[in-house]
Write a protein that binds this DNA or RNA. Structure first.
Length: 344
DNA sequence: AAAGCTGGCAACCGCTCAATC
DNA sequence: GGATTGAGCGGTTGCCAGCTT
C-alpha cells in the first residue's frame, strides 16, 4: 500500500546549493536522466537533498538552455498578455518563453514588471489629469467647475477600471456586492469614490443630482456605460477581448461605485485580469453570484478549481493550453499589441 | 565608514491532483 | 474505493548585494 516515504526530513540539507552538489546533480541527470523518480534521485547520487529540492534545482537552474534575467520587451508583452488572460499560472506562461522558468517569470513579475506597469499607468494618469484640468479651466470659464470638489480628491482619478458588465439577477445581489467590490478595488491597489451619482468618462465629469430621475440615469447608463452582451459575458469577452473594455465605462447600479472609462491601458488590463481571475480574487464573488458563465449558471458558493475553468477564460490559452498553437500565440500577440502598441 | 533600507533572486512550504498500492 | 505517495505548481520567505542616509 502506498509508496516509500519521500525523504528523511531530518537528514536533508537545506539552503543554497554548492557547486559540488550542482555538478553531481547535473552530471547524473545528463547521463542517466531523472529516471522518473525525483525522490530516489538524491540517494542514488549521494546528495543529502530532498527530491523536490533536486527537481527544483534542475528545472530552475541546471537545466540546459536556461536564460536568466534580461527579459526583452517582447517577453514582457507575452508575460503581461498571458497574466491578464490566465492569471498567475506561471508554468503555463513559462512554457511560452523558451529558456525561462516559472520561478524566474514569477520573480520578474513580482519584482519588476508589475511595478513597471503600475509606474506606466501612474504616468499616464498624471498626464491625463493635467490635460483634463486644463480643459476644465477652459470650459468652465467663470472658474466654477461643474465638478464637485470631492472629485478632485486624490481618491477619484486613480480608480482602476473594473468591468462589471455582467448583468445582475437581482438588485439585492448588486447592493450586497458593495463590500466585495471595495475589497477588490483595494486589492487591486485602486481607490474608489463613495459619492453617489458621479460618473467620469475620462474627459468630462458628469454629476447626477440626487433628484435626477432614475429614467434619466438609466438612459445615460444604457447609452454610455453598459455594454450589452448578446449571449454571455464571456462570449463577449472572448469576442471583443482587448477592445471593448477600453471604450467602456460602467456604473454598478445601486452600488455607489463607479468604474471609470479606460484611463489607461493598464486599467483595462486590470479589468481583464479581474475578469479572468474572478474565482481566485477575494472579493470577486459578487461578479458571478448566480450569474451566467458561458450560458450556464454558476453557484456562488461553488468552489471552482482552475481545472474546471477552462471555459471561463480565453480558450486558446486556458482550455487547450497543451498545444498552444500558432493561432493562440497570434491572438496573444494581437492582444498584446492592443495594449502595448509598438512594444514588439 | 557604518547602519539601515530596498530590491532581486533562490529556495522552501504547502497545497492539489494524479498515480499507485 | 480508500489510503498513501509523488509530481507539479503557486505563494511566501530568507538571504544577499547594492544603495541611501
Amino acid at each position: 500500500m502506498g509508496r516509500a516515504p519521500c525523504c528523511d526530513k531530518a537528514n536533508v540539507k537545506k539552503g543554497p546549493w554548492s557547486p559540488e552538489e550542482d555538478a553531481k546533480l547535473k552530471a547524473y541527470i545528463e547521463q542517466h536522466g531523472t529516471g522518473g523518480n525525483w525522490i530516489a534521485l538524491p540517494q542514488k547520487i549521494g546528495l543529502k537533498r530532498c527530491g523536490k529540492s533536486c527537481r527544483l534545482r534542475w528545472l530552475n537552474y541546471l537545466r540546459p538552455n536556461i536564460k536568466h534575467g534580461g527579459f526583452s520587451e517582447e517577453e514582457d508583452g507575452i508575460i503581461c498578455s498571458l497574466y491578464i488572460s490566465i492569471g498567475s499560472r506561471w508554468s503555463i506562461i513559462a512554457a511560452q518563453l523558451p529558456g525561462r522558468t516559472d520561478n524566474d517569470i514569477k520573480n520578474y513579475w513580482n519584482t519588476r514588471l508589475k511595478k513597471k506597469l503600475l509606474g506606466k499607468q501612474q504616468k499616464e494618469q498624471q498626464s491625463r489629469r493635467g490635460s483634463s484640468l486644463k480643459q476644465d479651466k477652459k470650459s468652465s470659464g467663470n472658474g466654477e467647475s461643474m465638478v464637485p470638489d470631492h472629485n478632485q480628491s486624490p481618491y477619484w482619478p486613480q480608480l482602476p477600471v473594473l468591468a462589471a458588465p455582467i448583468p445582475y439577477s437581482s438588485q439585492e445581489q448588486c447592493i450586497d456586492s458593495q463590500d466585495s467590490m471595495r475589497r477588490l478595488l483595494i486589492k487591486l491597489g485602486g481607490r474608489f469614490c463613495d459619492d453617489d451619482h458621479v460618473i467620469n468618462d475620462g474627459t468630462t465629469l458628469h454629476h447626477f443630482p440626487n433628484d435626477s430621475s432614475s429614467a434619466d440615469r438609466q438612459l445615460y447608463e444604457q447609452t454610455v456605460h453598459m455594454p450589452s452582451y448578446s449571449s454571455s459575458p464571456m462570449d463577449a469577452l472572448n469576442n471583443n477581448i482587448g477592445t471593448q473594455f477600453v471604450n467602456s465605462q460602467y456604473t454598478v447600479n445601486g452600488a455607489n461605485l463607479h468604474m471609470l472609462q479606460g484611463q489607461s491601458s493598464f486599467s483595462s488590463e486590470l479589468q481583464e485580469m479581474a475578469r479572468s481571475n474572478l474565482q481566485r480574487l477575494d472579493g470577486m464573488e459578487f461578479i458571478y453570484g448566480e450569474g451566467m458563465v458561458n450560458n450556464r449558471a454558476v453557484n456562488s458558493c461553488e468552489s471552482i478549481g482552475w481545472g474546471d475553468t477552462s471555459s471561463l477564460v480565453c480558450p486558446p490559452v486556458a482550455s487547450e493550453y497543451e498545444g498552444i498553437q500558432q493561432q493562440g500565440m497570434l491572438q496573444e500577440y494581437a492582444f498584446s499589441e492592443l495594449r502595448y502598441p509598438g512594444a514588439q
